[in-house]
Amino acid sequence: MPEISLASFVALSATFLAAGWVKGVTGMGLPTVAMGVLGAWLSPVVAASLLLIPSFVTNLWQMLAGPAAPRLWRRLWPMMAGIVLGTTLGAGLLVRADAAWSAAALGTALIAYACCALAMPRLSIAPRAERWLSPVAGALTGGITGVTGVFVIPAVPFLQSLNLEKDELVQALGLSFTVSTLAMAAGLLSHGALRMGQLGLSAYAILPALAGMWLGQRVRHRIAPKTFRLCFLLFLLLLGIELVSRPWR
């Protein structure tokens, strides 16, 4: 691992502990929280690199925690293909763009996600529409992932609109996030943006992320879901506003 100050090491550990805790409570949010917080003090491309291994491990765990994974893969493969294509193409912008403007793009994605989750009712997509919307949603998600490192828009609202059972939805989110993480790794690697030192820190981040998930799962039933969700989304909204304001300071 590269040399890193004690303060940065503690901040990195605390970020992934908090992000894992959110994921343990809600089943999602680790990449969003980690990218948002890391993006406040690191360039988005470095933040995305640090996110790769803990995101892959936790989402693979989530994807495989049930019997529905093969069935979901057969149903959602067009979306996954769109994610791979959009992410690998969009990653070049994340690598080449000015750090301040990349942070602003990340902030815009966080604001959009928070506003959609707070204001939009949950939709329902008919099976006939799903056939053509699936690759479109995947490509849009991939493009936004490649540019910002955040892979929730529009994947999360799209998957929520498919009327999946609760456990199936959790696994579907795990599948989408796992594919997005692998596609992001491929995109960064193809543009020469991955460094061994970053991967070393990313591997270390598995520990606080898994500890946070364990803590989150233990307290999941002790927190009012609506209250936690509201606080979480307001936090993302404020963080997004701070990131968007950077190029104008």
Rank of each mutant, 00 (worst) to 15 (best):
Val46Glu: 11
Ser13Trp: 04
Met1Lys: 08
Gln171Asp: 10
Ser134Arg: 02
Val219Asp: 13
Ala34Arg: 03
Glu3Gln: 14
Leu51Gly: 00
Ile83Pro: 04
Val179Glu: 06
Val33Pro: 03
Pro247Met: 15
Ala91Ile: 02
Ala183Cys: 01
Ala119Glu: 07
Thr15Glu: 06
Leu89Gln: 00
Arg229Asn: 04
Pro225Gly: 12
Ile125Gly: 04
Asp167Val: 14
Ile206Ser: 07
Ala7Tyr: 13
Ala129Asn: 12
Ala155Asn: 01
Gly27Arg: 00
Leu94Ile: 09
Gly192Asn: 08
Ala224Ser: 07
Arg220Ala: 15
Pro247Phe: 02
Met120Trp: 08
His221Asn: 14
Ser180Asp: 10
Trp101Val: 01
Pro208Ala: 11
Val170Arg: 09
Met120Ile: 08
Phe16Leu: 13
Ala126Met: 05
Gly240Met: 08
Gly187Gln: 01
Ala224Glu: 07
Phe235Glu: 06
Val37Asn: 05
Ala193Glu: 07
Thr181Cys: 02
Gly82Gln: 14
Pro54Asn: 12
Lys226Trp: 03
Ile206Phe: 03
Val136Phe: 15
Gln217Ala: 15
Ile53Pro: 01
Val33Leu: 08
Ala117His: 00
Phe228Cys: 10
Cys116Tyr: 04
Pro70Trp: 12
Met120Leu: 14
Gln217Ser: 15
Ala7Phe: 11
Ala193Trp: 00
Gly200Tyr: 02
